[in-house]
Amino acid sequence: MATYTDGTPVPEDGKYHVDPANPMVKVRYLEPWYPPGVTEFFSGGNTARLGLLPDGTVLKYVRDREDRVALNSLNVEHSILSALGQHDRIVNYLGKHEHGILLQRALNGDICSYISKHEHDNISLQLRQKWMTQAAEALAFIHSKGVIHCDIHPNNFLLDEQLNVQLCDFAGSLFGSLDGGAMESTRFFLPRDWRDPPNIKTDLFAFGSVMYYIMTSREPYVDLSDDEATAKFERKEFPHVEGFKCGSVIKGCWTGDFRDAEDVLKAILEESLAEN
């Protein structure tokens, strides 16, 4: 089932419909298709899906093979992952496939799915701190290469067998003249005209919300409507983070105090060292 950003279903009429929460996105309902050889399917977005191949690799492919925007986004992801190369904090790219691109499987899923399967108190502070540090390393690395992710979110940070972080999903990212067209979801969105392109500051704002999620197992203002959460952000009213591990770093990302992700990483490490 195709859904809008807010989770409501798209009409099953085969026509394109504008996403109410993101006017830049149009989606339509499609009967699913299954690339040959895929043995298991993972969750995917409105434009792409993930399937497991017999050799254990993951195939990312577009839902609608006639969707030029989705095909372009997959080509953007190929170009960006190729340019980034191998890095411990980036999903391992294995190259092109006739139906999409190949990725190494992250055996522990993503941060969202991992946290949802575990009681909050059963995830140690040390592990949460590791995730924040490694996620900041990933962001600092891609920014150093000129890549703006555009959709920094806990479900785009994968966890490998050792629960180490790997950033993924560059299909919507910006890289030079390449533009995948993505934009952050509500609770990770720096208030601005939606026509303004994402940049380092918008990635950092979203990262503040990622850190908040890692520490609390909840998105900021999860109990409020999207409009109410947006209004809070516009008034620069943020959730309380006093007493949190790296609380000052989280707030600094939201308030725009950091110049770049490298500064965020340094602040996380400094706070860690100060408490040891």
Rank of each mutant, 00 (worst) to 15 (best):
K201I: 14
I80L: 02
I250F: 09
A2W: 03
T255E: 13
K96N: 05
V264M: 10
C246E: 06
S185H: 06
L204F: 13
E219C: 05
Q129E: 12
L53V: 03
V264L: 08
L139V: 15
A261P: 10
L158I: 05
K117Y: 09
P54S: 04
L81Q: 05
A83E: 03
L204T: 12
S144N: 11
S43L: 13
N156H: 15
Y212N: 04
E161A: 07
P54L: 11
I250A: 04
A70K: 03
A140N: 05
I111G: 02
Q126M: 04
R105N: 13
I152R: 00
V222R: 00
L52P: 01
P198L: 13
W254G: 03
L53G: 00
P239A: 03
N156W: 12
I250K: 03
V76N: 01
L102H: 01
K15C: 12
F41T: 14
N22R: 10
T216Y: 13
G252Y: 15
L174E: 02
L53T: 00
T133P: 01
L174N: 00
N72H: 10
G85V: 12
S124H: 02
Q104A: 12
V58N: 00
K15A: 15
I101G: 02
V69H: 06
G243K: 03
E262M: 13
N122D: 11
Y4L: 04
S116D: 14
F41P: 01
F188M: 05
I80S: 00
G180N: 09
G7P: 07
R235Q: 11
Q166G: 03
W33V: 03
W131H: 04
T57N: 09
E270S: 12
D179Q: 02
L273F: 08
V58Q: 00
V249E: 07
S113I: 14
Q104G: 06
P220L: 10
Q104C: 04
A140H: 07
A229F: 14
A106W: 08
E12W: 02
N276D: 12
P36T: 08
R192L: 14
V27P: 00
K96M: 07
S113R: 05
C150I: 07
L273Y: 07
A171K: 08
D179W: 07
R187F: 15
A182D: 14
S73M: 12
K232S: 06
A136L: 13
I115R: 01
S73G: 04
D223V: 04
P9D: 10
T8W: 06
H78Y: 10
S113G: 09
G37D: 11
I142K: 00
V222H: 08
V38L: 02
L158P: 02
D110P: 02
I200T: 15
A267Q: 09
A106E: 12
T230D: 14
A48C: 13
V69Q: 05
M211A: 12
N22D: 14
G14P: 02
A70W: 07
R68D: 10
F175K: 00
L174P: 00
G208N: 09
V69M: 04
D13Y: 05
Y213F: 15
G172V: 12
L178M: 09
D263M: 14
A2T: 13
N92V: 10
F41R: 01
Y93E: 03
P197S: 11
P23L: 08
Q162T: 07
A2S: 08
P11H: 09
V76R: 02
G85E: 12
N108M: 08
V62Q: 01
L102Q: 01
L107Y: 08
D257V: 06
V147A: 01
F244W: 11
I115Q: 06
